[in-house]
Design a protein around this nucleic acid. Sequence first.
DNA 1: GCCAACGTTGGC
DNA 2: GCCAACGTTGGC
Length: 153
Amino acid sequence: MTKYWLMKSEPDVYSIDTLESEGKTHWEGVRNYQARNFMRDEMSIGDQVLFYHSNTKPPGVVGLAEVCSEPYPDFTAWDKKSPYFDPKTDPESPRWMMVDVAYKETFKRLVTLDELKEHPDLEEMLVIRRGMRLSVQPVDKDHFDTVLRLGKQ
DNA sequence: GCCAACGTTGGC
DNA sequence: GCCAACGTTGGC
């Protein structure tokens, strides 16, 4: 059963344009247990992903991607040269997990965070909640469809 | 670049 | 196991 997600990335670090040119990527660097658990326990191949640009102005959903691997250990955690290096984990017992994500499309237009906040059908969407910092979060199918429609119009 | 909101760490 | 200190996220 297909699930729906929103995944945040800072465009300065990894933008949807980069994903488009690479085709797919491993979603490295998630160092939050709740986000890790979503990837590890609930994601499966074919799940649909709203690609969100954070820490930019304006922030918002820029396109669509798709989960294209099972979860597997995030090897950047024990790569000393990686910005995501975590000295407290090791390959014997991986702490952090990731999935591969494939490019699907870039929206005709950016669906901004402000727009999500103002849309009457998206009041319950997690991403608009104050203090919501999860970089990987589940999205209801209804919300997903609404955002998709906004992005295509 | 500020800072509020969170999550994590570590002393006790 | 409490909680203060610290670090990070991410909108603004």
